[in-house]
Simulated scan of single mutants.
Amino acid sequence: MYCAVLAAVLTLSSLLVHPAAWASPDWAWPVSPRPAVSRHFEAPAQKWLPGHRGVDLHAPPGTPVRAPQDGVVSFVGVVVDREVLTVDHGDGHKSSFEPVSATVRVGDRVSRGQVIARVASRGHGPGGDAVHWGVRENGEYVNPLRFVADLRPSVLLPVPEHGGS
């Protein structure tokens, strides 16, 4: 009986969680090995308010930055005071990285895992040892980690009591 109830709960809960809430098998971490996240995504309360529209991945200057998914390079250029690289992955998804020194040009097709840049000599963040990764989905910034990590909350289920003496 317990197994049937557990199976029903797991089946129903999987239907309630939007599929984009967990990692996609098509995406890979842009820094290898899997980096520490030095600053997480912070969605602004309104589009025009402050927030952190991406994640900062620990990556010292010179670290290779890889395409997290196949795509076409749509932008390489300086924004304010740092080089930014954007890859259009199709289906409304674009990844951007900063500060980087690009090894690809606008119009280049890139493959998942291909080196597309190196973290610039003065990296991102207070210690200068990170790369900022932002992802837009249909023009809106979303948490990049949802494409490479399972962000669903952990659910602890009760342990059935065993009949004993």
Score class of each variant (00 low, 15 high):
Met1Val: 09
Tyr2Asp: 12
Val5Thr: 12
Leu6Asp: 05
Leu6Trp: 03
Leu6Thr: 03
Leu6Ser: 02
Ala8Gly: 07
Val9Tyr: 14
Ser13Gln: 12
Ser14Ala: 14
Leu15Asp: 02
Leu15Ile: 02
Leu16Gln: 10
Leu16Pro: 05
Pro19Gln: 08
Pro25Thr: 09
Pro25Met: 09
Trp29Ser: 05
Pro30Leu: 13
Val31Ala: 06
Ser32Met: 06
Ser32Arg: 14
Ala36Tyr: 08
Val37Ser: 00
Arg39Pro: 03
Arg39Met: 06
His40Trp: 13
Glu42Cys: 01
Glu42Phe: 01
Ala43Asp: 10
Pro44Ala: 10
Ala45Met: 11
Gln46Asn: 11
Trp48Leu: 10
Leu49Cys: 01
Asp56Tyr: 01
Asp56Ile: 08
Leu57Val: 06
Ala59Thr: 07
Pro61Leu: 11
Gly62Ser: 06
Thr63Phe: 09
Pro64Ile: 07
Val65Asn: 02
Arg66Ala: 10
Ala67Tyr: 05
Ala67Ser: 13
Ala67Leu: 04
Pro68Cys: 03
Pro68Val: 08
Gln69Cys: 09
Gln69Phe: 03
Asp70Thr: 01
Asp70Asn: 13
Ser74Tyr: 01
Ser74Ile: 05
Gly77Ser: 05
Gly77His: 03
Val78Asn: 10
Val78His: 05
Val79Trp: 00
Val80Cys: 01
Asp81Phe: 00
Asp81Glu: 13
Arg82Glu: 12
Glu83Thr: 15
Thr86His: 00
Val87Phe: 02
Asp88Pro: 05
His89Asn: 00
His89Ala: 03
Asp91Thr: 00
His93Phe: 12
Ser95Phe: 02
Ser96Met: 10
Ser96Gly: 14
Glu98Cys: 00
Pro99Tyr: 07
Pro99Cys: 05
Pro99Glu: 06
Val104Glu: 04
Val106Trp: 06
Gly107His: 09
Asp108Ala: 12
Arg109Leu: 03
Val110Thr: 07
Arg112Cys: 02
Gly113Ile: 05
Gln114Cys: 02
Gln114Leu: 04
Ile116Trp: 04
Arg118Asn: 01
Val119Glu: 10
Ser121Arg: 15
Arg122Ile: 13
Gly123His: 11
Gly125Gln: 07
Gly128Met: 06
Gly128Asp: 04
Gly128His: 09
Ala130Cys: 10
His132Ser: 01
Gly139Thr: 06
Gly139Asp: 08
Glu140Val: 15
Asn143Val: 09
Leu145Thr: 00
Phe147Ile: 06
Val148Thr: 12
Ala149Lys: 14
Asp150Ala: 10
Val155Ser: 01
Leu157Asn: 01
Pro158Asn: 08
Val159Leu: 14
Glu161Leu: 15
Glu161Pro: 05
Gly163Ser: 08
